[in-house]
Amino acid sequence: MGDPDVPQIIGSTDARRTAAAGEVRAATRPLRFLGWLTFLVLAVGLISMFSYSLTASELMRSDNPALAAWWEAHQFHFMEAGATAFGVLLGIRIAGSFVTGRDQRSRAGWVALVFAIIAFAPLIHVCAAAARLGWNGSGASVASWLISREGYETGRQIDKIMIAGVYFLKTAGFALLAGLGLMAIACVAAIVLQSANTETEKT
């Protein structure tokens, strides 16, 4: 960290200390809104997941039947989209934290974000389809174990939440890989751009 040429190293926090000058410099973190966006999509995904698994739309059916019908038709897609967005953003953030240099990290983050927006719709379908692939028949034994332990009603509810939760996690897991891949491409773009800039400066 003592080298002024290397202002930011992996693992550093918001308030970055520049040891060379002996001062504390509050460096603005690039793409700060990514954190909020990740939290937002996680919240949307989790709410949709619990609503889907607990059939929460039934609660508002008497008050607002139209909204309840709309939500019932779309909550599953919200869950899939939330899980995919969460995974992709998490992947971008994880890989982004390993990129050195504020400018380069910010540039790579923006490029990855643009790629993610372009690829988001197909990614939802691909990640959700991959997440629907089952392990094997062990799910049935978990369900019967839960029912025998908690009783039929509670056991079925817990089992539904577990199924939706595993689906959410698997979708997010595949999307995380996609996010890491997008960040890798974005890093390539940043590397090529930086190399081109250096060559231009030389000439």
Binding site: I9, F98, T100, G101, Q104, A108, L176, L180, A184, C187
Partner: peptide
């Protein structure tokens, strides 16, 4: 996932 994170660290951090 570990490989991609390591490769990103290798080229976009140490390499840079």
């Amino acid at each position: 996932a570990i490989v991609i994170v390591l490769a990103t660290y290798q080229y976009a951090n140490v390499g840079a």
